[in-house]
Design a protein around this nucleic acid. Structure first.
Lengths: 149, 149
DNA sequence: CTAGGTGCAAAAGGTTTGCGGTTAA
DNA sequence: TTAACCGCAAACCTTTTGCACCTAG
């Protein structure tokens, strides 16, 4: 199977380069995992990514999907999204953003952060260095809120 | 062992009542678990709570600590604090607040939220209901940041 | 007295790892 | 060619559960 004959056509050269630059190989498995993530930005779990990837590449294993997700995360192409102790979800949106979790249907949405949330000078001890911050919102999505009535 | 002869003296009547009101029993195990949490507000994991509680009550089991933490959480006396896939930590601070996680030493601090973070009207689809929000900051605590130099 | 809680051990569930064979560069 | 990667299965680790006994109310 050549690269140009499969779904990987849509890969942007820069992703290839991003992976190579980090000293990782650009394998079919990694491409398919990344494609699965880009195709539907609905924050799938590793198992969901596995099932979707399996359709294109039936031989792939769950362990490989986990490994690929790990590698892509290390490359900065993908972000881990954790909520409580639920299975990790994965997100290819690299913009700084928060997440909304629907308590009813389990949907996960990206939430844009405005300047003030990004900037946030927190009340922290002098000398503390903040490198990253995450915002998680919970509640009911519009559809579920409507049903509740 | 009577209640008044052990460390449970410091229990505020209201905790007792809070538990009773929910239809739960006020057991020694639950008291000791809660005490362990109140004694050092350093966001221990369940295993750490277990080890601390075991000193006062050697017969307690880890499963019971998990059960007690669960019950106390249901009563609203304790909050779960999750970060990535690391073991859950527990926190008796009921004020609305965020958490700072030191990447180097693993320390966890409470971070007060100011009005604007609390208020935050997020850019969400119309009809979305937000019931809860969490802020997690990562970086280096003052001590670790100093060492890095 | 008795429903609910505890302790134990075993199971569950997500994720990681060791290893022999495979493949991108 | 060869170091990195894959697939498989087994291990890991945190958390939950089933069950017999115990205890707070």
């Amino acid at each position: 199977m050549s690269v140009s004959s499969d779904k990987c056509d849509k890969w942007d050269k820069s992703y290839d380069e991003t992976i190579s630059l980090r000293g990782f190989r650009f394998t079919k498995q990694r491409r398919h995992v990344y494609d699965a993530l880009m195709a539907r930005r609905d924050h799938p779990t590793a198992v969901e990514v596995f099932l979707r990837t399996k359709k294109e590449m039936p031989s792939i294993s769950l362990a490989t999907v986990y490994n690929c997700l790990e590698t892509l995360t290390e490359c900065g192409l993908v972000r881990h999204v954790n909520h409580d102790r639920a299975p990790s979800r994965y997100c290819p949106n690299l913009e700084e953003h928060g997440h909304f979790f629907c308590d009813d249907c389990g949907a996960v949405f990206d939430v844009p952060l405005r300047k003030r949330e990004k900037a946030g000078q927190w009340e922290l001890p002098t000398g503390t260095v903040v490198t990253n911050h995450e915002v998680a919102l919970r509640g009911l999505c519009a559809a579920c809120a409507k049903k509740q009535v």
